[in-house]
């Protein structure tokens, strides 16, 4: 079994404008994903993140800690959440993330075991 972090990116939109059907579809898609994970491996952790306009970036610049408003990179898409899962292989992980809402772009990153 391998651990993967699944990074979820999407173009920001206003959840409060979502219709009942849209909300139900989102929950159903995340539900189907979780069921698939439980059937093939296990879920380690997950979180949904607040919008990037609430993000704070911290960097060391010339030995000073510099705090700036905003995310790492200004892109059309933002990281909106993640799952950490344990699955047999990449094919299973691809099959799993394909169940998530189609508006997402998904990045699958293997987790390095630090011994």
């Amino acid at each position: 079994m391998k651990n993967y972090v699944i990074l979820i990116a999407y173009e920001p939109w206003d959840w409060s404008t979502a219709t009942e059907e849209q909300r139900a579809a989102f929950f159903a898609q995340h539900g189907a994903f979780s069921e698939f994970i439980d059937a093939h491996g296990k879920q380690v952790a997950s979180a949904a993140l607040d919008d990037t306009d609430t993000a704070t970036t911290v960097r060391h610049v010339n030995g000073e800690v510099v705090v700036t408003d905003g995310p790492f990179a200004e892109t059309a898409e933002m990281i909106g959440g993640y799952y950490e899962v344990e699955l047999p292989d990449l094919d299973t992980a691809i099959e799993a993330v394909a169940l998530l809402p189609p508006s997402y772009s998904l990045e699958i990153r293997p987790v390095i075991a630090v011994r």
Partner: peptide, 14 residues
């Protein structure tokens, strides 16, 4: 190896 691409035949749908 690191991403876990398997030495396997996928299911009939894939």
């Amino acid at each position: 190896v690191s991403a876990g691409i398997p030495l396997a035949v996928p299911g009939a749908d894939a």
